[in-house]
């Protein structure tokens, strides 16, 4: 464990708490893509199946359980508790265009052709694009509540921090490198660049998140 990864994980945790806070204080999931949240459940379940047969550390297990439980809970909030505030008519990204290629990529690129390793690869590829329905929705509506942008920023920072983590590990752990996670991680971080530009130039200057018409 190094500082980059710890801060990255904490940023990931923070993003989930920000999202829960947004839903509970505004009593609304307006502006949140159900599809993106459903993809995250898929990602966590596919990746953390190893909870059943591999113990890494208490930290590792607790985080995995938290990510699965909180993502399922968010789906529950969107689908049941705050259902009337969820508007599927603006959440129109076609996720089959993400799922198909991710299945294909995971069958080609994996560390071992076994069920759990292919699922792990699949989860890595899917996570890298899971934010697209959310960003697409943002693009469509052209604006976002400030708290929603903080959620997205924390999520983007989490991924961005994994990059120095990999560089650090490569240097300190005798050339250890995980090309699948690194490639997907670079793509995932890249998807946030446009968002970050608006976030830093507008939201952090106290303005509303609004995209140019």
């Amino acid at each position: 464990m190094n500082l980059f990864r710890l801060l990255g994980d904490l940023s990931h945790l923070a993003s989930i708490f920000i999202l829960l806070h947004k839903i509970q204080t505004t009593r609304s999931c307006r502006g949140i893509s159900f599809k993106t949240q459903a993809l995250y459940v898929t990602v966590f379940v596919a990746r953390y199946l190893d909870l059943f047969y591999r113990y890494v550390s208490l930290y590792n297990s607790v985080m995995k359980l938290f990510f699965i439980a909180s993502s399922v809970y968010i789906l529950y909030l969107m689908k049941y508790k705050y259902r009337p505030t969820n508007d599927p008519s603006i959440d129109t990204f076609r996720i089959e265009y993400l799922l198909g290629p991710c299945v294909l990529l995971s069958l080609i690129f994996n560390y071992k052709f076994s069920v759990t390793e292919v699922l792990w690869s699949f989860s890595i590829f899917l996570e890298s694009v899971a934010i697209l329905p959310q960003l697409f929705m943002l693009q469509r509506t052209g604006e976002a509540e400030t708290i929603t942008t903080h959620y997205l920023a924390a999520l983007g920072v989490y991924r961005a921090l994994y990059i120095p983590n990999w560089i650090y590990r490569y240097i300190t752990e005798d050339g250890v490198v995980d090309p699948i996670a690194v490639t997907a991680g670079l793509v995932q971080t890249g998807l946030y660049i446009d968002f970050f530009y608006v976030y830093f130039t507008k939201v952090l200057q106290g303005q509303k998140f609004e995209l140019p018409a």
Binding site: D9, R54, I180, A181
Partner: peptide, 10 residues
């Protein structure tokens, strides 16, 4: 070096 991924990352 065999292709192995670090198993400790989230």
């Amino acid at each position: 070096k065999s292709a192995e991924r670090p198993k400790d990352e989230l």
